[in-house]
Design a protein around this nucleic acid. Structure first.
Length: 276
DNA sequence: AACCAGGTGGAGC
DNA sequence: GCTCCACATGGT
């Protein structure tokens, strides 16, 4: 996607929109780093280029409206950041991650992506999703779309095996069929919280943690606090000695913005881990 | 060469 | 309800 072919950019202050923090905090797997703080990002059949250059972050895309919504640009993160900074244990993580925005991702893409994420590592998750798109998504302007639900419904079990997802192949096969054959997607659009959780967990390969990620990233429910191995390592205490307890404690503590708090903690923990 | 990675499903209690 | 454990694959 050569820069001189692109239409007008969206220009947005970097204080609460940092390309690296937003993309590398683990909420999305379809991005490619071009250089420091400059990324190609794919969502559904669309692509954009995002880069943070000093005071401003720019988005170049043919479909500006789509990415304005995708990056949640009409939400005021300043308010949320100042509220979360008030918690002593969050002050540092919030400060270093305040450029994170919670993306408004497609529900089906999020479901499939986070089933793949289970007991897996981010580089390999990215590779598996990339193969899924390359092998089964429509080609468009030099990149590949995420396969439509109809297309995934048409995939047989050996097709799912061919993307190298390991033991998750059977979950993906089963869930693609369920999403297509039942009304669960329409129902989820109206649900939040525990109702959404319960409904999501009926899908094969979706347990409590993956369901929370789908609620947070695919339904934009910022009140959930997904607990994965990183968060659990960071947050566990003698009292909070299971993932369920950590989840209950922090979702109650941070309320409507618990999911964003979780992203700050996750990003900070990962950045710290990556440095050594 | 065991151990880990944005966990889940299933068996056994 | 809860606690174990197998599970594909690739990296350290």
């Amino acid at each position: 996607m050569p820069a001189d072919m692109l239409p007008l950019a969206i220009k947005f202050p970097s204080e609460y929109f940092d390309a690296k923090a937003t993309l590398e905090c683990g909420q999305i797997f379809r991005y490619e780093r071009l250089k420091e703080n400059s990324y190609l990002v794919n969502s559904l059949d669309k692509q954009c280029l995002v880069e943070t250059l000093g005071e401003y972050t720019y988005i170049y895309a043919f479909d500006k409206d789509y990415f304005f919504n995708f990056f949640d640009l009409d939400t005021d993160y300043g308010k949320i950041v100042s509220r979360l900074s008030g918690y002593p244990e969050l002050k540092a993580a919030t400060q270093s991650g305040k450029g994170i925005r919670i993306l408004r991702q497609d529900l089906v893409e999020t479901v499939i992506s986070f089933i793949i994420s289970a007991n897996n590592n981010i580089p390999r998750i990215k590779k598996i999703i990339s193969r899924l798109c390359r092998q089964f998504g429509e080609e468009k302007e030099g990149h590949y779309a995420f396969p439509s639900l109809g297309k995934m419904y048409a995939m047989d079990f050996s097709d799912w095996q061919s993307i190298g997802a390991g033991f998750r192949d059977k979950y993906l096969f089963s869930t693609a069929r369920a999403l297509y054959e039942t009304d669960i997607l329409a129902e989820l659009a109206l649900k939040r919280g525990e109702d959404a959780q319960k409904s999501l967990c009926s899908l094969s390969g979706v347990g409590p943690k993956v369901a929370d990620c789908i609620s947070l990233f695919g339904l934009h429910d910022l009140s959930v606090f997904p607990v994965d191995t990183w968060i659990f390592k960071t947050c566990r205490t003698e009292e909070l000695n299971t993932a369920a307890k950590v989840r209950a404690f922090y979702s109650q503590r941070y309320g409507e913005h618990a999911g964003l708090a979780q992203q700050y903690v996750f990003y900070a923990a990962k950045q710290a881990g990556a440095k050594e």
